[in-house]
Simulated assay, not measured.
Amino acid sequence: MSLDLATTRRIAKLARIGLNDQETEAVRAQLGGILGWIEILNEVDVEGIPPMIGTSMNTALAQRPDVVTDGNCQEKVLSNAPDRAGPFFTVPKVVE
Rank of each mutant, 00 (worst) to 15 (best):
M1A: 01
S2Y: 15
S2L: 12
L3S: 07
D4M: 04
D4G: 12
T7G: 05
T7K: 09
T8D: 02
T8E: 02
R10N: 03
I11G: 01
I11P: 01
I11W: 02
A12K: 15
K13E: 15
L14R: 08
L14S: 05
R16V: 12
I17Q: 13
I17V: 11
I17K: 13
I17G: 10
G18T: 10
L19Y: 15
N20M: 02
D21Y: 02
D21M: 01
Q22S: 15
E23I: 03
E25I: 04
E25A: 05
E25N: 02
A26F: 10
V27Q: 02
V27L: 06
R28M: 11
R28Q: 13
A29R: 14
L31N: 03
L31A: 01
L31E: 01
G32K: 08
G33R: 07
G33M: 08
G33L: 05
L35N: 15
G36F: 10
W37G: 04
W37H: 07
I38D: 05
I40H: 07
L41V: 00
L41R: 03
L41F: 15
N42S: 10
E43N: 08
E43K: 13
V44C: 00
D45M: 06
D45P: 01
D45S: 04
V46Q: 03
V46T: 02
G48L: 03
I49W: 02
P50T: 02
P50N: 02
M52F: 01
G54A: 09
G54H: 01
T55I: 01
M57E: 11
M57Y: 08
T59C: 00
T59H: 00
A60K: 15
L61A: 09
L61W: 01
A62L: 09
A62Q: 08
Q63W: 03
R64D: 12
P65G: 12
P65L: 14
P65C: 11
D66K: 12
D66A: 12
D66R: 12
G71H: 10
N72W: 05
C73A: 14
E75T: 04
K76A: 09
K76L: 15
V77F: 03
V77C: 01
S79C: 02
A81L: 14
P82E: 03
D83N: 07
D83E: 06
R84G: 10
A85S: 13
G86K: 03
G86N: 08
P87R: 06
P87H: 06
F88Q: 10
F89W: 05
F89Y: 04
V91T: 12
V91M: 07
V91H: 10
P92G: 07
K93W: 08
K93Y: 04
V94L: 15
V95N: 04
V95I: 05
E96Y: 03
